[in-house]
């Protein structure tokens, strides 16, 4: 029992990037345990996926040809049955929205300890050492799992994607699924409505977060954006509050933006926000908290009150 089983992530006909990152994380872990790296891909065009997942370091790909789209009942059953068949030491899943819809159920059913949203993994003797954040990224922690086996979900973007072509065996796995036990049905997908502006198109984004405090104060941000000839975007709470429409939201569940300049104002830099803006050319943060996680990825920063800095900056640009 030293193998690693990694579960690929896909949606609407495409493998998601984290799938290839899981291969790297899985290979690293299997090297430490001295085991093989097995990859499972469940539902959808599995043969096509298997070909793509056969990258360097993968020993075996197991395809479960059942249904088109993600269904957590199918995933949970397929993975627990694969686990019984392969007896791996570690199960690696993506910390994606779908990953979090089956990994905890799999862990519970297999009675495996679970550690989620991991950014680094190592093996120390008998223990698995997982690095993860707490308090919205203000601190990092190491957690030791002293168990024979474990389930882990990994954060996307933390491991490089596996490359090259491997010589994995590809095997179809026959899963036994009791249709009556499937209690959820995906009936469709919906895209969050577009709207007035396309923030992915902007060269300069002035992005506002919860630090703005009140809806009325947004005027300060729009004044600055106008003076700078920039577009206004925001973090999630601003949209949750209904102060700006969803098409302005930057992040995991919003838009991914890559402007030349991204000015984050009163935004802490939670991982789900950073996922949408870390590719910006230059990142500026205006935040009273010098320890806010946004500082870890900012190029320039002002550790001061936005209510003092923003009007002064607007004035600089003749606003």
């Amino acid at each position: 029992m030293s193998d690693v089983l990694a579960i690929a992530d896909h949606r609407r006909g495409e493998l998601r990037d984290v799938s290839y990152e899981l291969l790297t994380a899985g290979r690293d872990l299997a090297d430490e345990t001295g085991g093989d790296l097995h990859v499972a891909v469940v539902s959808g065009p599995v043969d096509e996926y298997a070909e793509k997942l056969d990258r360097e370091g993968v020993d075996a790909v197991h395809t479960v040809d059942y249904g088109e789209e993600f269904n957590h009942d199918v995933y949970t059953r397929a993975i627990t049955q694969l686990y019984d068949a392969l007896a791996p030491q570690y199960v690696l899943a993506p910390n994606s929205v779908n990953g979090l819809d089956y990994a905890p159920a799999v862990a519970n059913r297999l009675d495996l300890p679970l550690v989620t949203d991991v950014v680094d993994l190592a093996v120390d003797g008998d223990a698995l050492v997982a690095t993860r954040e707490m308090y919205g990224g203000k601190v990092e922690t190491t957690t030791e799992l002293a168990a024979d086996a474990a389930a882990v979900t990994i954060r996307s973007g933390e491991w490089p994607a596996a490359e090259g072509t491997g010589d994995a065996t590809v095997e179809a796995f026959d899963v036994d699924i009791d249709e009556d036990a499937i209690g959820s049905t995906v009936t469709g997908f919906e895209e969050v409505a577009g709207g007035d502006v396309d923030i992915t198109d902007a060269d300069v984004l002035v992005s506002v977060g919860r630090g703005i405090d009140e809806e009325e104060n947004l005027e300060l941000i729009f004044d600055l954006a106008e003076a700078m000839d920039a577009t206004v975007s925001s973090s999630r709470p601003i949209v949750d509050n209904g102060w700006l429409p969803p098409n302005r939201q930057v992040g995991q569940s919003g838009k991914v933006v890559t402007p030349d300049v991204y000015v984050a104002i009163g935004i802490s830099g939670a991982v789900q926000h950073v996922a949408g803006m870390k590719g910006s050319e230059t990142i500026v943060a205006i935040n009273t908290d010098p320890n806010a996680p946004i500082m870890d990825i900012a190029d320039y920063a002002i550790h001061d009150d936005l209510f003092d800095v923003v009007p002064a900056l607007t004035e600089e640009f003749g606003g």
């Binding site: 300890p113 954040e133 203000k138 922690t141 190491t142 957690t143 799992l145 002293a146 920063a301």
Partner: peptide, 17 residues
């Protein structure tokens, strides 16, 4: 089965000015 063994402030990835 989980034990917290360390807590620290994350290292910054950029040279922030």
């Amino acid at each position: 089965d989980l034990e917290l063994t360390d807590m620290y402030e994350p290292e910054t990835e950029t040279d922030v000015t």
